[in-house]
Computed example of a mutant assay.
Amino acid sequence: MLSTAVKVYIAAAPIDMRKSIDSLSMLVRPMFDQDALSGHVFVFYGRRRDKIKVLVYDRTGFWLMYKRFESGSLADPSAIAQRGLSLAELTTWLEGIDIGVRRRVHAVSATVIS
């Protein structure tokens, strides 16, 4: 399983979705400046943003996960690629939920009466 130390890298531009594990692993270094064998998660998407491939190495081999949305498409991957994602956010995003909106934390001021 994936640990919380794993980072998620999302391609900034779409790729040819016909690419296989070998082709995608060769794109990791030039696209993300990372080693494909690092154990990090590398996310690739197609031009129409209705297909996504996730590449992960787990010490024994590569996993390639592929998802095709039956309707709709992913929220803008290029914007998300710039800020990065946690594993929890990746799961949400892969469910088709737009994660572009961040929760805001409001500061609460307290007055101390002595």
Rank of each mutant, 00 (worst) to 15 (best):
R18D: 00
I80G: 04
V28H: 09
L87D: 08
V28Y: 11
M26E: 15
G100A: 06
E95Q: 14
A81L: 10
R29N: 13
D58I: 04
R29T: 12
H106L: 10
K7S: 10
K51S: 15
A110S: 05
L27I: 04
D16S: 12
R83C: 07
A36N: 04
A107Q: 08
H40L: 00
R59V: 09
Y66L: 06
A13Q: 14
V28R: 05
T92L: 12
D35R: 13
A81G: 04
L64P: 09
H40A: 09
E95A: 13
A88E: 15
E70N: 15
G96I: 01
I113W: 10
R47C: 02
T92E: 12
R18V: 01
V28I: 15
G39E: 11
Q34S: 10
L74C: 08
I80A: 03
M65Q: 08
A5M: 11
S73F: 08
S78F: 10
I21F: 02
M1S: 14
D35E: 15
Y9Q: 00
P30M: 01
A107W: 03
R68H: 15
Y45L: 03
F32M: 05
I15F: 09
G46M: 08
H106A: 09
S20R: 01
R47E: 04
L87E: 05
D16E: 13
S3Y: 09
R18M: 02
M17C: 08
M26R: 14
S109I: 03
M1Y: 09
G100L: 07
G100Q: 03
V108E: 06
F62R: 04
V105F: 08
L37S: 07
G84L: 01
T91N: 14
D35I: 11
F42L: 05
V43W: 09
I99E: 05
G84M: 05
D35P: 07
R49V: 00
A36V: 07
S109V: 01
G100W: 04
E89I: 01
T92I: 01
H40E: 12
M17T: 15
F69M: 09
H106F: 07
V41C: 11
I10Q: 10
M17V: 12
V101M: 09
H40M: 00
R59C: 12
K51G: 06
L27H: 06
S78A: 15
R49G: 06
T91L: 03
R29E: 15
F32E: 10
G84P: 06
L90S: 11
Y45G: 05
E89Q: 15
F32D: 07
E89N: 11
